[in-house]
Simulated scan of single mutants.
Amino acid sequence: MAALAFEAQQVILMRTAMLAAGGPKAKKEARRMVSEKVAAAIEASQKAMAGASADTLIQGYRRKVRANARRLGRG
């Protein structure tokens, strides 16, 4: 859980910088961010209802956060 929190803070920092810069990339990132969050919440809810453990849910979120960190880190 601590690793997820740390990784998420890195993504938040990169996204905040991008959104503050404005422009078409920021607009696209804002839309992407909202749609990803909705999709991740739906996926986690489905897994939880199917009996997935908290660790499984956290690992799912971590995969998504790491993918976002890699994508945002490329600039």
Rank of each mutant, 00 (worst) to 15 (best):
R15E: 13
Q10D: 06
R71K: 08
A21V: 11
V34H: 13
A3T: 09
L57V: 07
R74M: 10
Q10L: 13
R62H: 05
A54E: 14
S35L: 14
M14K: 08
R74K: 04
M18G: 07
K25I: 09
S45K: 04
L19H: 08
E36W: 01
A50C: 02
T16F: 08
E7I: 02
N68L: 02
R63S: 10
A48L: 03
S53E: 11
D55R: 12
Q59V: 08
M18R: 13
R71I: 09
A39D: 12
A67V: 00
A2K: 12
R62Q: 09
A8L: 13
A39S: 10
K28S: 13
M33H: 07
P24V: 15
V65H: 01
A52D: 02
R32W: 08
E7K: 09
E36R: 02
M14W: 03
G23H: 08
F6D: 12
E7D: 12
A50S: 06
G23E: 08
M14F: 03
G75R: 05
M49I: 09
M14E: 09
A39K: 10
A44E: 06
L72E: 01
A69R: 01
Q46P: 00
A21Q: 15
R66V: 14
L72V: 02
R62K: 10
V34K: 13
S53A: 14
K47Y: 02
E29K: 01
P24L: 09
A20Q: 15
A41N: 05
A5G: 04
R70C: 03
